[in-house]
Design a protein around this nucleic acid. Structure first.
Lengths: 232, 232
DNA sequence: CCGAGCCACTTTGCATGCAATTAGTCCCGT
DNA sequence: ACGGGACTAATTGCATGCAAAGTGGCTCGG
């Protein structure tokens, strides 16, 4: 018995909705972000087709979509490789992300529902309850973090903002993991999240915007520092 | 002689490099933005394949890319249609665009080269030299406008910003054309462009940012007003 | 020993065939 | 006459074949 279907959501098994290309896109995106394919690795269509149980056509389509997300680089007639992120890329990416997420927080402040606020609280609570730095814990923290940011962006109710964020939201987990392994940064991040929730609950758009911008830019600076320390 | 090639760069004509899918993508994007395919029109792969002299495969790939740009909507097994923009969409889109282009202007202020400044001046001069409101003039004005904004974004030298803008930059010309048909709005827009260039030349990042934001938000408000007048 | 050129294998990109699904139409029953 | 259901035609989505371009290795010459 094979277990490749573990990478799919249960929903997509019980309800095989959507095209094959979309599934390959989702799964491959997850695999890249999850670090299964390291940056620079070549992505050959035939190997991926075999892995996902389809032909090369949907794989090719998925790769083009991933190129649009900035996760993959395709050179005509030369193939696709997982995009590598250098320090400059990350700074650029985080600054754009800071702008967009700050705007999302601003817009969310006046639209967010009690349910969404409760979901944000729950995400913070779950993150707070976790302690230690096992691999499993780091994974859960990252998932919780993504959920938090996802709720804020969704509350902004701006399709274009969501779409624009897609182009900067995809960063391999390998990079982000350093946040959640460092307990100091983890605590700072959690405090920032609490602050953002409080701002949103108060309906204070500008405060929420500033809090989110601070949060993302803090993450940027920490990431830069870590990269400099590692490369020097 | 036709002038559809105005939407392409000269380079892509003289050097037919790249895959077939990319050409279809560029051409089809130009055709949609140019208004050749009205919103809501179904895009059948076979017809497009015949038009572009390829098979259905590259057309299909181009359609998926255009969906990523928000110009096309694809429903699985039901086909692709040119996306329709309602008033809410346009407001959303212009607000995100205002944020991103303002940031681009901010970043450009400290990086822009004399050559780029000269190119901006030239674009303004060309727009100013044009008068009247013939169809040809409107086309040229829109092309000049796009060139102006393109130079500013390029001067920001932020790949992620450029990428994020792609998702909000594609608006069918039919909508934008109203700016340039109204000579009042045209003059205001031109004055705003001059102001932006002056800010950039002065190296004043915040001023450039504000000027650009004002420019885009002014366009947004004018567009909203026009749409309300037309629909009421 | 090293480099340039050539050849074979690999891989991509496009075209086309085929099955599955949907839209449209017509017929039939009520 | 009108609504429902089945059939047909059209269209999508996927698989695969094939040609072209690229990559790597090998040989041969310097």
């Amino acid at each position: 018995m094979d277990l490749w279907f573990c990478t799919q959501t249960v929903a997509s098994v019980s309800a095989p909705v959507g095209t094959s290309a979309e599934r390959v896109y989702e799964d491959l995106r997850g695999a890249i972000i999850g670090g299964e394919f390291p940056p620079g690795e070549r992505l050959r269509t035939e190997a991926l087709a075999e892995r996902f149980g389809t032909s090369r056509t949907p794989v090719r389509e998925a790769l083009m979509l991933l190129e649009g997300d900035g996760l993959v680089e395709i050179e005509p007639r030369r193939g696709a490789v997982v995009r590598a992120f250098d320090s400059n890329d990350l700074v650029d990416l985080y600054e754009v992300r800071a702008i967009l997420e700050a705007r999302a927080a601003f817009a969310a402040a006046s639209r967010i529902t009690p349910d969404e606020l409760a979901a944000l609280d729950a995400a913070c609570d779950r993150a707070e309850a976790l302690s230690g730095s096992s691999r499993r814990t780091v994974e859960t923290l990252m998932a919780t973090n993504e959920e938090f940011h996802g709720i804020v962006v969704a509350a902004a109710a701006s399709p274009r903002l969501t779409g624009a964020l897609r182009t900067v939201a995809g960063i391999p987990r390998t990079f982000k993991a350093v946040f959640w392994a460092e307990s100091d940064e983890c605590r700072r991040s959690l405090a920032a999240h609490r602050d953002i929730v409080a701002s949103l609950r108060a309906g204070s758009a500008e405060r929420a915007e500033s809090a989110m911008r601070l949060h993302v830019l803090t993450a940027r600076d920490f990431l830069i520092e870590v990269m400099r320390d590692r490369q020097d």
